[in-house]
Each structure stands twice: as C-alpha cells, then as structure tokens.
Design a protein around this nucleic acid. Sequence first.
DNA 1: CTTAGTGCAAACTGTTTGCAGAGGG
DNA 2: CCCTCTGCAAACAGTTTGCACTAAG
Lengths: 135, 135
Amino acid sequence: MRMTNQREIILKELQKSRQHLTADELYERVKKFMPRISLATVYRNLETLSEAGIIGKLEISGRQKRFDYDVHVHDHIYCLQCHRVDNIEFGRNLVDHGSITSAQGYRITGYRIEFKGVCASCRKNPPQDKESTHE
Amino acid sequence: MRMTNQREIILKELQKSRQHLTADELYERVKKFMPRISLATVYRNLETLSEAGIIGKLEISGRQKRFDYDVHVHDHIYCLQCHRVDNIEFGRNLVDHGSITSAQGYRITGYRIEFKGVCASCRKNPPQDKESTHE
DNA sequence: CTTAGTGCAAACTGTTTGCAGAGGG
DNA sequence: CCCTCTGCAAACAGTTTGCACTAAG
C-alpha cells in the first residue's frame, strides 16, 4: 500500500475529526486541501484503509456507511434525529459472552450492538423540521 | 388503509414464507400470482404495512432492507455466506436492561443486537464461489 | 363517487468501475 | 521504470417519485 498524498490527507482528516464520517463528508473536508480530488478516490481509499485495519468501517442499520477513526472493539450509538454516531464503551459488558457460540444451527462468530437515542445537542435544540424523527 | 389485492398477496406471501425477504424477492414471488404488479407497488406496500405495524422492517447493517413477518420484539442472526436472516429469541436475555437508559449525553431509547455466523446449510454445503465470505 | 392505490418510467442516492494518464517507491 | 493510484465519467443497485389511470369502500 502506497502512502499517497490523498490517502494521507483522508486518514488525517478522519482521525482529527474524532467523528464517524461518511465518504462524502470526508470528501468535503479533504477538498479544502486538495480541490481536485474525486469522490471515487475517497471511497477507494476508505476501503483500502479499512481492509488494512487502519480505520474501521461502520454499517449502521439501513444507513450510509461511516468510517471509524478508532479500531479497537467497541459499540456504537446513533442519534435518531441528526444521525450522528458515537462510540459506546460499555456495550460489550452488558452481554454474557459465554452463552453465545451457537444457536439454531448457526455457528455464531460475532455480534454487534447498536444503541439508538437522542444525542445531547438534539435534546437541547428543537428538531427544526417535522420529519426528523423517522425510523 | 385499503386492503387491495396486491397488498393482501404481498402480506400473505411474506407470512407464509416465514423468512425475511427483500422487496425484490417478494416481488418475484408475488408476480407468479399477479404478473403485472410493479416493484414500486411492492415497495410502497411493504412500507405501508410496516408503518401500520403489521410487518417489521429490518435494516441489517449495510445491506438491503428485509421485511419481517414477525412483529414481536426479538433479535436477528444473519449468515455471512448466504445472507439469510433468522430470528433469535435469546438475544434480549443476554443484555442487562437496567443499566441502559443514558450514556454520554444521549437519552437511550432502544438497541438492537445482530448476531452473525454461518447457517446450518452453509456449514454443510461448500461455499461454491471464492468471494462468498465477505465482510 | 371519492380518494387511496396502481403501473410505468424516470429520477435519485450511495457506491463502484473502466480507462487512460500520473506519480510513488 | 513499473505498477498502484488517480480523476473523470459512466454504470450500477436499491429505492423513491410524478403522473394519469384504476378500483376499493
């Protein structure tokens, strides 16, 4: 894996954001430093970086992919109003690992927990448009 | 909500399948009885039925939507090889409900657990194509 | 009758890909 | 100098929408 200029900027921007950005959010940020970069390059690099285990890929139920600056095992919580995603540390502690190795013929290899709720800033701020609390 | 012919057949087919079908899988099945039905109608009806609480909508991380004949609260397990989805009953028992009401500023309103693994039939049958075990 | 629902085609969103040229090692 | 990576445009998959017509109640 070559460390190209675009690759490096994409990675740095994701890490410094400390957020779970989508490809196009990242594209917007990276464009400020590199106006001619293409969205395809952003997608390709995010894929490459996550395959290399340098970043995480986050597939929250039914929504756009997001990418995670933090690769250690943890769970996520997302806001039903603004769709931001945050890390949650205690998720794994809630689950009794021992009992989950198989069920109805499956060999279970893993699980994910996704919490949902309303984030601090959405709790303060009015939900401006009537249709923001879907799902 | 009118109970149209198409609505009724879509619902019946989903229920009798006892599976978690995607819109186009259902479309293929319904077409056998109603060859002129359109995919858009299937989408619209699945949406309507799930809003009415008659079926469930299943948004498994990063994949196509699936619809659930079973509306009672339960979790899901999906096969990494063939992507089928099954119900899992014991998921909720593993989690200590009490402690999850808030975290880092969020008001938590719910959570979902998604187990992954290899289903019984994929464990028997060879994984024919080399690229079947992605994610 | 009235108005929700339908079929069709076209639009849309998020993502991927083919290609010819550029630049990292 | 080679070959991975890039930018661009076009393709793609899943889903949604505008419209004029149909049918449920």
